[in-house]
Design a protein around this nucleic acid. Sequence first.
RNA 1: CGGCCGGUAGCGCAGCCUGGUAGCGCAUCAGACUGGGGGUCUGAGGGUCGCAGGUUCGAAUCCUGUCCGGCCGACCA
Length: 475
Amino acid sequence: MPAVGRRWGLRPRPRRTGFRPLPSRTKVRASYVARDPGMRLSAYFLPTLKENPAEAQIVSHRLMLRAGMIRQTAAGIYAWLPLGFRVLKRVEQIVREEQDAAGAQELLMPTIQSADLWRQSGRYDDYGKEMLRITDRHDREMLFGPTNEEMITDIFKSYVKSYRDLPKNLYHIQWKFRDEVRPRFGVMRGREFLMKDNYSFDIDADGAKRSYQRMFLAYLRTFARMGLKAIPMRADTGPIGGDLSHEFIILADTGESGVFCDRRWLDLDVLAAAPGYDEDLAPFFERYTSIYAATDEKHDPATSPLAASELVSARGIEVGHIFYFGTKYSGPMGAVVAGPNGEPVTVEMGSYGIGVSRLVAAIIEASHDEAGIVWPDSVAPFRVGLVNLKSGDAECDAVCEELYGALTRAGVDVLYDDRDERAGVKFADMDLIGLPWQLAVGPRGLKNGVVELKRRATGERQELSKDAALARLTG
RNA sequence: CGGCCGGUAGCGCAGCCUGGUAGCGCAUCAGACUGGGGGUCUGAGGGUCGCAGGUUCGAAUCCUGUCCGGCCGACCA
């Protein structure tokens, strides 16, 4: 149940049911209880920039700074301002919904972990300087978690004692810290980042592979919902370890990894024939892992099965990574359950990560133009930007208020630019922050009884009556 | 962690070489004119020049140290 996501006001909803009742004596204005999904720009904290900050090298970083989404507070560490925060929460919510649909269960583990836990798996020394190590007032060794295999294994083994309780798949969405030598590209490669990580526990290798395949499908569905084409590629397992692993890569010129894939990937709709989670996922998995795709670590031109004409060489952004690693952690840490015959069985594990904060930048890399960001509808901070082209004009103000009220009542997230600014400034800001729809109301149009609706992605504009515009935006 | 570059108003930058009243554009504030794609004019506010030490009558400027940031490499969701 996405209880947390619900609180953030992320999706349009006609009515709210999740509130605790207020004490009966408390007097509250109705507008407070039924929170307005809209926002007036004159009151909103949206510090947009006209010029490009010097430190930003790639387009997503530049646009996130210019659109007032983030603010760097230290190398690789960012504050999320209201607009950026909305997008982050929407991305997070899509990830959550797809995890839930795949049968994973959400929990929340702390950011700070004890060093002792990591000594049990032997990774305390292996992880090196990437791990931020801290001591508390009693000189106890702690660390800011870069990942959670040890902690989840510890939690799991404390309670789960029987094969009857398997399989289990637990996830959380929590801030991680990896002390990168060289953070760069904004939230694309920050030191602190929001990650969804989950962990599957199965009684045997066959079960673990089924869990792996479920996540494989869940990941494809997740990225597709954000308007991204993510290609699963054979990958190195790195410090997580294991023998089966795929990275999910979005093709982008600014990507950090070199990648190679079969040309067929470019216009493949992987979800067209996707099975349901209750079906046998093996054929689907086999099919899409057999179409060649590999990161440069795994790609060997000498043994490549593809002719040069069929092979695409590109750059990519890693947005997800899944691992099957068997008993690498359950073994040393003693995650053992009783099997069907009462014998002890060490559980088979996998772990699965999605870089939630990185995805925000990755989506921008994949969807922008000269004027700014072009948000896919599914993650846009607001659905509609309502532009009053002449604030202070009685008729413009009245029509805007009417549209604003109607949209918010219909549960449409709308950002109303009611500022006393020139039309050009308002259009430029709207294009920059990339809301899917712009609804412009000006005296010239009103004279003819029309408003202008613009689709950000295509630039297509249409003049229509305000009722027709409302119907389009609420339908 | 190695190499290179940088830190001057919220942002973008000049001034530094050759020491002598800290500047420009944008942004901000006030007012006026404007009003369909970052408009024009008038006026105003905003800086211990990253920090510490040194040289000097005098340091943004020269020297030393230090912190922070960017780029290139090696490493990573």
